[in-house]
Each structure stands twice: as C-alpha cells, then as structure tokens.
Simulated scan of single mutants.
Amino acid sequence: MSIRWLSALIFVLSWPVLAADHGAAHFFFYRINPGDEAKFEAGYQRHLDWHRQHRDPLTWYGWTVEDGERDGFFVDASVGEPYEAFDHRVDLADDAADAKVHVSPYVTPTGRPTFQLLRKVSTATPLEDKEPSKRVQVTFVSVRPGHERQFEQSLVVSRKALLSMREAPAHTWYRLVTGGESTQYMLMVARDDWASFDRFHEDVPALLAGDEGALRAFSAAVRDMRTEMWRYRPELSNLTKTGP
C-alpha cells in the first residue's frame, strides 16, 4: 500500500461518526409565473400577515435566487426548530386556504426538501440565530452512496481551516433528510455583497489543500456540486421574536 493511500485510510478511520444536530430546516422552492412577480410579492406579504395574526411561532425566511438554473425562483424556509414543530403548525387548513388565494395563483412549487443542521462542521448558524446575511451563497453537494462518513469527516478539517481565517464568512452545513436525492448536502455561506469574494473565495477543496487525506476523501465522496446566490428578502420574511 502506497503512503498516499495509507494516509487517506488513516484519515477515514481516525474520526468518529458525527453526531446529528436535531435542528430541522424546511425549504420550499417556487418558480414565479412570468409577469406575476409583483402580484406574487403582494400576495405573499398578505400571507405573512396571516401568520402574524395567528401568532405563528415559526420563523420564515424568504430569498430570491439571483443566478444559475433557478434564476428568479423564490425560496422560503423555516429553520431552527425541532422536527416536532411541523406537527403542530398553526391552523394548517386555514393556512393552506389563505395561501391558495394569495400565493398559489402566481407560482409553481418545484420542491420542498427538509434538511438537518450539521452544527459540528459549521462555523456559525446565522439563520438559526435569526441573523441572516444580505445574500447567501448556496452550494448543493451530491455525495456517492456509502461515502457519507468520509465526506462529513472531511468537513471537520475544512471547519478547522475556516476558523483560522480572519476573513472567512459563516459556513453552515446541512444534510438532506427527505425531499430529494438522499445523499445530498447543502452549504450556506453568508455574503453581504459581491465585495466579500475579494476578501474570501476559497471553496472546500481549497480549504482541504493542506490535508492530503481529507482532500482525497472529499474528492472520492463528491459526485457533483452546483452553486447559486440567493438575495435575502426581509419584506418577504417573518422572524419571530425570542423575548417578551
């Protein structure tokens, strides 16, 4: 066995399996019907008013996708709660009826994946802390079945590298639970503006460049990656209060 392969094998076997964080992250993707953007935004704001009037305890974030294949899509999400919270949503039937009037005529739903926060490989959790950035760089990673352990172990190394970089923005990792290809992960990198790329632009392989075993494990595990930028829409969001 070569020294390189021995290094990779030692890396894979030396880390324990990461413990799961039970923070649920429910995402909903919508394609806005052509020409209905203004009607959708006005209707969605009215629907958020319904949530406020019914004292919905869930936090709802809204974004517009700015590039990639889903350019122009709207994304909303509820994060930072246990999975059980979605079993006790406020007046679900009336919620659906209100959405049918104010939102559904203007959009086509395209997906509703649920992710699990991986806090131990993340450097910060802006959404769970209700401190969203003005933009967020979102990378979806498809991992080969059976390589999840190696992939997550490589993220431990990337986190260590990030914590040593003064200009590194918040990196938050999630693992898909249901609603898509099962071996899928999502990385959200906080970005306030495009100038943030001048200060920090390293991707995960670059972060792993100093650890041959981790880089080899990551490269063997990843099947595909795609990235897009989302713009936070505070007027299309509802952040619940945590205090009195």
Rank of each mutant, 00 (worst) to 15 (best):
12 V>K: 04
30 Y>R: 11
211 D>W: 03
150 Q>I: 01
222 V>I: 00
204 V>I: 15
30 Y>K: 06
89 R>T: 08
120 K>Q: 14
15 W>I: 12
111 G>I: 09
76 D>C: 09
119 R>Y: 06
182 S>I: 11
157 V>G: 01
231 R>T: 08
198 D>P: 06
207 L>R: 09
217 A>M: 12
124 A>R: 12
56 D>Y: 01
25 A>T: 00
119 R>C: 05
199 R>F: 08
139 T>N: 00
164 S>E: 15
203 D>V: 14
6 L>R: 14
164 S>K: 13
31 R>V: 15
236 L>W: 11
108 T>Y: 05
56 D>T: 08
30 Y>M: 05
21 D>F: 01
106 Y>I: 03
27 F>N: 09
22 H>T: 11
112 R>Q: 13
201 H>A: 13
2 S>M: 03
111 G>D: 03
61 Y>W: 04
100 K>V: 01
5 W>G: 06
83 Y>K: 06
130 K>T: 03
75 V>P: 00
142 S>P: 04
33 N>F: 04
174 Y>R: 05
112 R>G: 10
232 Y>I: 00
151 F>T: 01
149 R>H: 05
122 S>F: 11
30 Y>A: 08
151 F>I: 09
192 D>I: 01
28 F>Y: 13
208 L>C: 09
156 V>C: 02
10 I>S: 03
59 T>P: 07
156 V>I: 14
179 G>I: 01
203 D>A: 05
81 E>N: 14
236 L>R: 11
186 M>V: 05
174 Y>G: 02
133 S>C: 04
20 A>E: 11
9 L>F: 10
30 Y>Q: 08
237 S>W: 03
148 E>G: 07
29 F>R: 09
55 R>E: 11
1 M>I: 03
150 Q>K: 07
45 Q>E: 12
84 E>D: 04
41 E>S: 14
43 G>K: 01
109 P>I: 01
222 V>N: 09
22 H>V: 01
102 H>A: 02
84 E>K: 09
164 S>Q: 14
137 Q>V: 08
104 S>K: 08
238 N>D: 12
70 R>V: 08
7 S>Y: 07
234 P>E: 04
107 V>I: 13
59 T>Y: 03
200 F>D: 04
70 R>Y: 10
